[in-house]
Design a protein around this nucleic acid. Structure first.
Length: 357
DNA sequence: AAAGCGGGGAC
DNA sequence: GTCCCAGCTTT
């Protein structure tokens, strides 16, 4: 990718000026604080600004400094992440900040080799923190930047391919200015989020449309090239609302895979070959439950990025103290259930069972 | 290089 | 319904 010196300088200046005048007022932009930058960047991974704002506000209010976060329990951290998704981000951020306190005297490192070794911090977040918080000339290539570049240079590379991100970083290296590299990176992302949008880009409001090869070719609508994601795989599950003595049985999910380590209702994969009633009876037998099973079941669906669950929720009231506790399970007082952090799919189920805020 | 990992909003 | 978002880790 060759960019003439004159055009390069103009693109830099136009973008920086546009960003100065048009940047959104966001909570993490109100102070220069590497901790705020890191928290916001982790939350913003695959997540829109509007969704993140209330989570960021609550998180910083509860954990104002790296020391507050390092001292917190994992349960408290995940509770503040409840509903935001990709929960390993919360656990990784917690681990990273603990490492910062333990190893770097509470200062988020400003060297690429060090910060990129922290849990959950990949190439994008490394570049974002180094450029925004520490004003270093390091690229930060996210989905927005790839879309902007794809159109600006009329590129045919598939942005879904890992190799394309490397190529985009090489381009960013050439474009990023010595002056205000952090603002420049944010300008590219802000442009992608507000003007150079995936659908119906508003090229007439774009500060660099005069340099845009895609726009000049009339190809802005079909760029960027991106292979489609596969449809989520379908699965059927049964969730069990098990009550006894005014307590509800909640279970920690397995430590890997979907919703790893999150609190949940006991969930079993549906045995398609038998009626679900039979599977429920078998489940009770296996756990030695003598239970009165509610007549009505609640059916609903939930779509994750790679899975599509059809869910049958059944409720049962045990008539005697169960002999043993299922693996990774605890009894929770009914009024305390919502103090635990549940992913959305289980929040829906719990709401149906009468647990709601 | 590809798969797995949440949830939401825009259309 | 489809697309995709201020991505990272594991396989």
């Amino acid at each position: 990718m060759e960019i003439g010196d004159n055009r390069l300088h103009d693109i830099q200046e136009m973008l920086l000026q546009w960003y100065l005048e048009n940047q959104r007022d966001l909570p993490w932009r109100r102070h220069s604080n590497a901790y705020y930058t890191l928290v916001s960047e982790i939350m913003l991974q695959q997540t829109k600004v509007a969704t993140v704002i209330p989570y960021f506000e609550r998180f910083i209010k509860r954990f104002p400094t790296v020391y507050d976060l390092a001292d917190a329990s994992d349960d408290d951290v995940v509770k503040l992440w409840e509903g935001l998704g990709y929960y390993s981000r919360a656990r990784n951020l917690h681990a990273a900040i603990k490492e910062v306190v333990a190893t770097y005297d509470g200062v988020i490192p400003n060297e690429k080799e060090k910060i990129s070794k922290l849990k959950g911090i990949g190439p994008y977040t490394t570049g974002a923190v180094l450029s925004i918080a520490y004003k270093q000339k390091v690229p930060a290539v996210d989905g927005n930047v790839m879309r902007v570049f794809s159109r600006l240079f009329d590129m045919e590379d598939d942005i879904a391919k890992p190799a394309t991100r490397k190529k985009m970083e090489a381009i960013a290296e050439q474009i990023i200015p010595d002056r205000s590299p952090g603002d420049f990176n944010q300008a590219l992302m802000e442009l992608g989020a507000t003007v150079c949008t995936p659908k119906s880009p508003e090229c007439l409001f774009c500060p660099i449309r005069n340099f845009c090869k895609g726009y000049q070719a009339g190809r802005e609508h079909i760029l960027p090239i991106k292979t489609k994601a596969k449809a989520p795989k379908k699965a059927s599950v049964i969730m069990f609302g098990v009550k006894w003595n005014n307590k509800l049985l909640v279970q920690k999910r397995p430590s890997s895979g979907l919703l790893a380590n999150m609190w949940a209702l006991p969930t079993e994969n549906r045995m398609e070959e038998m009626p679900y009633i039979s599977q429920i009876e078998e489940y009770c037998e296996m756990n030695q439950y003598s239970a009165k099973i509610s007549e009505d079941v609640y059916r609903f669906e939930h779509i994750f990025s790679h899975r599509h669950w059809k869910i049958i929720l059944i409720s049962m009231e045990l008539s005697e103290n169960p002999v043993y506790l299922p693996k990774r399970s605890i009894w929770v007082d009914e009024q305390s259930v919502l103090e635990f952090a549940f992913p959305k799919v289980y929040q829906k189920a719990l709401e149906q069972l009468g647990y709601r805020n």
